[in-house]
């Protein structure tokens, strides 16, 4: 039986090849076939998850709730030092310097990334802004969100902090951060599905050992990760509870 690996569509495109390298590593560890299925769309990926097509996924924290509480997936590990934080940015020459300077009618450039969008909306609340008094334009990447800011199509943009930090210096210098989240306990997780539970213990052990092994370190580097940390059930439940408080 070939198993299916997938990655939340919000991973940085610079690490695309890293996930293919990881998949090769994974098949060697498990001595079984694993197919890597990548998606551009969060909704299409969710539909396939619900239809039982995915066995192992590097999931965004927003989807972790569905995976763990509804579909019986279990968190294997989390990436070290990779908390998901959100930045709201504007053009560098914009007179508005903080979220409270934004007013109803403001145009926001965003992505389909559910975590970043949710956190962006929460950080707009302090300016009395919500979905009823702002307009959104959705873009496929953070580079396009930045472009929308620079060419005046949007007043502010929502970015995954890692995506904002990866913008070219030239582009980033033409923007400024109005606010950046500092939550630190919300992050992606590597989550394993019911059909793959028999591999769970071995895989967790190998994942945790990756950083000790030169080849494993190369694979981690290609994915832009420092290593994996154990995440126990209660830590997972805590993160999901926290996210539940943020969703209306």
């Amino acid at each position: 039986m070939t198993l299916n690996l997938s990655v939340s569509p919000d991973f940085p495109p610079t690490h695309l090849s890293g996930w293919f390298i990881f998949n090769t590593w994974l098949q060697r560890q498990l001595d079984t076939g694993v197919h890597l299925e990548l998606y551009d769309s969060f909704d299409a990926q969710r539909e396939d998850i619900r239809n039982g097509k995915i066995d192992l996924i590097y999931a965004n924290p927003y989807d972790a709730s569905m995976l763990v509480r509804e579909l019986g997936f279990k968190v294997l590990v989390r990436p070290r030092n990779r908390a998901d934080e959100t930045v709201i940015a504007a053009r560098a020459d914009d007179p508005r310097n903080c979220v409270e300077d934004l007013e109803p009618g403001v145009k926001i450039a965003t992505t389909a990334d559910p975590d970043v969008h949710t956190m962006g909306m929460i950080m707009l609340e302090s300016a009395d802004l919500d979905k009823d008094n702002v307009s959104f334009q959705e873009y496929d990447s953070y580079v396009l969100v930045a472009k929308a800011l620079l060419n005046g199509q949007a007043d502010a943009g929502f970015f995954l902090k890692a995506g904002y930090d990866e913008l070219s210096e030239l582009v980033r210098n033409k923007t400024k951060s109005l606010v950046s989240s500092q939550i630190s306990v919300v992050h992606h997780t590597l989550v394993i599905g019911p059909r793959m539970q028999e591999h769970a213990e071995l895989l967790r052990e190998r994942l945790l050992g990756m950083e000790e092994d030169p080849k494993g370190r190369e694979v981690l580097k290609s994915m832009g990760l420092d290593g994996w940390d154990v995440m126990d059930e209660e830590e997972t439940e805590f993160m999901i509870d926290l996210i539940d408080t943020l969703i209306e």
Partner: peptide, 12 residues
């Protein structure tokens, strides 16, 4: 129980 607090607006 989990309690999560965030920044409120001045009007609220």
């Amino acid at each position: 129980y989990t309690s999560v607090r965030r920044k409120p607006s001045r009007s609220k």
